[in-house]
Amino acid sequence: MPLTRDPRLYQIACLAGLLAYGVTALGFEVGPAQILMTLGTALLAQAACGFASGATRFDPRSALISGLSLCLLLRTDSLPLVALAAFVAVASKFVLRVRGKHVFNPTNFGLVAMILVSDRVWASAGQWGTGGFFAFLMACLGGLVAHRAWRSDVAWAFLASHVSFLLGRTAYLGDPLEIPLHSLQSGALLLFTFFMISDPRTTPDARPARVAFGVLVAAGAYYVQFRLFRTNGMLWSLFCLSPLVPLLDRLLPGDRYHWPASVAGATSGGTVDATLVADPGRLAAPGAVR
């Protein structure tokens, strides 16, 4: 299988590009030390947890994605907390599992868990501004096109619901369209939509369940932002609703997703046999992972 068919490589390139753009053009307060600490810890945690769970090969791709996402999202002035976040994110994949599938998106879990336990960690939703929005959008959409919609239904369901809720609120309040448009031109929204909620390893297995999950997360995010008036609505919503995924998988069974050329233990703690998928858009054969 050609290496480029793995959507994770595109994701890694895209996230690294966004990080470089954020640090140089937008002044993200992420120093080289934080970046190295995050990536280093994520890779170490991947190797250690993989080894502990009997993996035969070290695959850095998923850990790199989690690490890069944490660099983009997590803000703190404490390096030990950075390391802890990266460790918690990667370790969650190996520990918090139901029927061989991890429950939380690692970045989402690492970030929210750290915000919960420490008041020195935060996420800066406004850090992207609206300047490079369209370039950002193109990069995200490019990823979808390049990889023929690997489970992008959940992203579209979330985005469509999110836009509908915002437009509905705008219509109800009688606000001008500039307000929802300003909210939608957010790098944080795109990052969440195309890199977090669409993580094919943690979304429900069946398409109807994925669509329902996307809508639910959008509703939860709206509730957090406009009813509870708290920040980071999307992150909290995904965190709180992720435990529903095993339930949705039981109610609406579907085919489990595997990264192309997935190797035992590389991303799933060693409980899965090697499963080759010819096309990332296609699903692995049923039963291959059970």
Binding site: T76, A125, I179, S183
Partner: peptide, 14 residues
Amino acid sequence: FPQDLVFQQTGDRQ
């Protein structure tokens, strides 16, 4: 500035 300003407190004490 079409929207009202919304703020958050961060843990940044630099």
